[in-house]
Every structure is written in C-alpha cells, then in structure tokens.
Design a protein around this nucleic acid. Structure first.
Lengths: 228, 228
DNA sequence: GCGATTGTTTATCGCCTGATTACTAATTAA
DNA sequence: TTAATTAGTAATCAGGCGATAAACAATCGC
C-alpha cells in the first residue's frame, strides 16, 4: 500500500544506533512515557514517541513488563544514595542545618514530575519496590533523624525510636512530600519558595518534637506544660 | 432456583432488580472495583464481580466513562460537607480542641482504602474534580484554620493568609493525609493510634506556627484538661 | 568490493477491550 | 389469561493490545 516499489526511498527513520545507546534511550523515554500515561500505556504509542516501530522494543526487552522493571530500577535506585546518611549524622553541624540541607537535596531529586508520578503509580500497584522504598525512608532517613533529635535533646540514642516519634517524623516528611505532589502532579500553584517551606516545616517539626517528647521522662507523657 | 418454577430451569442469575437499586448497586460495586484495579479495569471483570453480564452495564450507563464519572461524584461529593466549617470556627472552644475534633472526623471519612485510591487515581489523571478538591481544602479548611490561628495569636484576621502560612498548613495537612496513604495504600504498619498521631502533629503545627509567625506565648497550644 | 552480522521494519497472530444488536424471560396492567 | 413492557443475556463487531516471525537494510570484518 505504501509508496514502496518505485523509488529506493531510504526511510529517514532508520538510525541504527549502537545497542547500548538505543537501550538507554528507550529506558529514558519509556520513563517519561509511562510517568505520563501510566503503565497501561501502549507499546505502540511508546514506540511512536521513540520514533521507531513497536517490534523493535522487543529486541531490547523480552516483554513490556521487563521494560517497566527497568524503568522502576532507574527511577528508584539511580538517583539515590548520594551521601545523605553521612550528611544527616555529621554532629559537627547544628541539626537544623543538616536537616535543611538534606531536605533541600532530597527534594531536588524527588520533586520531579516523572519521579513522583512513577512513585505514585507503583504505590497504587502495591509493588514490592514501593514497600522497599518506604522501609528505606523509615530506616535510613527518619530513624536517623530521630536519633539525631534524641541526641540533641540529651535522650539515650541507643534505643529504637518510639512509634510516636517515628509517626511525627513521618508526618513531617509526608508533609514535605505532599508539597511536591501538589505542585508537580496536581499542578497547584506553588505558593512559596521550596527552601522556605522546608525551613518553616523544620521549625515546626523540631519545636514540635521538643514539645511532644521533650519532657523529662522518656516515657510518653502527654504534653502538660501550658504555655503562658 | 427460586421456589417459583418447578421444572423450567430458570437460570439462577436472573434477579431483575428495580432500576434504581441496580444502578446504585452498580455504582457502589464499581467504586470498589475501580479503586482496586484502577480505571483501566475491564467492564467484563466488573460485570463478573457484579454477577451480571457485561452488556447490562450499558443499559444503565451510556459508556464506561459515564459510569466512572458517577463513581467520582459519589466518592468526592457524598461524604463531604458535614458541618466541618462551623466546627472549625466555633470560637467558644479552644482552637486545639476544634482542630483535633475536625481532623478526627475528616480522617474518619478519607482514611478509607477506596476513597484514597480513587483520589490518587483521579489526581494522576489530572481531572478537574481533583483540582476542585484541592482548592476546596485550601479555601474551606486551611484558610479557615489559619484565620483561627491568627485570631488566637491576636493578628489581624481580615487579611488573606500569607503564602507561607498557607504552606505550613499544607505541610501539616499533607502530613496527616500521607499517614492514611501509608497505612491504607502502601500497607505500611500503622505505628500508632490515629488520634494520637493527629494530636502530636497538631502540637507541632501550632507550636511551629507560633514560632514561625508570631510570639509563642500568645498561643494556647495545649488542651485545658491535663491527661494523667 | 563481498558476505556475515545484526539493527529495523512489515505483516500478522491471538487475545482482550468497549460497545451494539437481537433475542429471552420476568414483571406489570388489562 | 393475555398482551405489553422491560430487565437481562447471548452473540458479535471493530479496534487495540502484547508479542512473534520473516523480510529488509545498514554496518563491520575481510
């Protein structure tokens, strides 16, 4: 049916990239594609966006699902682990500075439309990788933050953070996370400079932590001090 | 298999409900179905779950999309507007009590697997109804909370809340919201009693608000009654 | 140059999807 | 009882899906 026979017409499409480059290009573009369309997006649409034909995808990935797994891998694992743990535990600096710098850096990574959308999609699918990520945040970030808070307050740090402490840290962390969701997924107008938001949230968290857990006893006491 | 026809072999499936009942049943079950499967879920699977055949859906809804719209409507609009605004602005009670009670009630509604999942799916789709909901939270809940905080602190309340104030309220609100996401979508173990979490988050928010925007001494942050 | 290798496309398969039509049978009114 | 109405089903359509096989064409070793 096509204008096939008469002229040679080398199709402009054919680029014949090296396998490695192709593969990387596929994963990068697939990440953009699936982050917008969801993982229900079709392989034909994806191929069209890539400027190649659909079966070519199957030369590089055995199945759509394998491609998706690679997308998860690059989204979740690649941008992580950039020395954040050391940053958080460097007690030569004030805890507030450390937390501000950490959350500046952390949000520079995750406050990205692609990242956030893929994260939410995978969360809705109930994927293991999502549970792994949540556990990682709890164990590598929040638990550490609480330990630093306890150290700052003169509490014993060898004991595990209490459920209530962890929960308050989660609310703080989740509140910051939700700022990104509002801005980059809901398209809500960003009401303020990101670092200012983090600074204010940090103030609230640190003073709140001191208020809720800063009583003399390590046992959970309801805050009894009535201010003024 | 009713006691109706002795021989006839009436198929057990046929129930012939009244149109109103059927329709309502369809919407309710469709909400459950789509909340789990996402809106990419198939009409045949939905029909199977309903115990009817797939074409019957099209007798009650012109298209799958119309059914989905009805699902949104019942999820978003039905459980809302239960006198929360009055609760928030009742200045005969301490602001902390009001906020605690409000968030207890609010989370009783939205901390529901169905609700949260549909909310997130619709957010990822970028639907108008989602933007409407976010605007509603901002204008009807957060702005009001800030106004009460300002009143409590002796600030002028006629001026609009500043962007920074609104942002701090969003972080607080989003942190609470994210608790529900963690618990009901990610299946993360709920670390603590919900109302205790709200109480602690409230302490952090109110203390933080006072620290960031005003003199802490002028805010009454803790409940009157002292819990042993 | 030439053949071998391999990146890329064309054509297609089987299955599933949303939606429609024509029929069946339960209910209602006379 | 009987005829009209309508809830519900069986059969099916056109199109899209993921995936495969075979044909084509760009590159590389020689």
């Amino acid at each position: 049916m096509r204008t096939k026979a008469p002229r040679r017409r080398t199709r402009a499409k054919q680029k014949r990239l090296s396998p490695d480059d192709r593969r990387k290009e596929f994963v990068v573009k697939a990440t953009e594609f699936f982050s917008e369309e969801g993982f229900g997006g079709g392989t034909r649409d994806l191929a069209r966006r890539l400027g190649v034909t659909q079966p070519l995808l199957y030369r590089y990935f055995p199945s759509k699902d394998d491609l998706i797994k690679e997308v998860y891998r690059t989204v979740y694992l690649e941008p992580l682990d950039t020395g954040w743990e050391k940053l958080l535990t460097d007690r030569s600096r004030p805890i507030r500075d450390r937390l501000q710098e950490f959350y500046n850096a952390y949000t520079n990574v995750i406050f990205d439309r692609k990242w956030l959308r893929i994260y939410l999609y995978s969360g809705l699918k109930g994927l293991d990788i999502n549970r792994w990520y949540v556990d990682m945040v709890r164990d590598k970030i929040l638990s550490r933050i609480i330990r630093e808070c306890r150290h700052e307050a003169g509490f014993p740090v060898q004991s595990r953070p209490s459920a209530a402490e962890l929960e308050l840290a989660w609310v703080f962390h989740g509140g910051i996370f939700y700022y990104g969701v509002r801005k980059f997924i809901y398209g809500s107008p960003a009401l303020e400079d990101k670092e200012q938001m983090i600074s204010d949230a940090l103030d609230a968290f640190l003073t709140g932590y001191a208020r809720v857990f800063g009583a003399a006893s390590e046992l959970r006491l309801t805050p009894m001090k009535v201010v003024g």
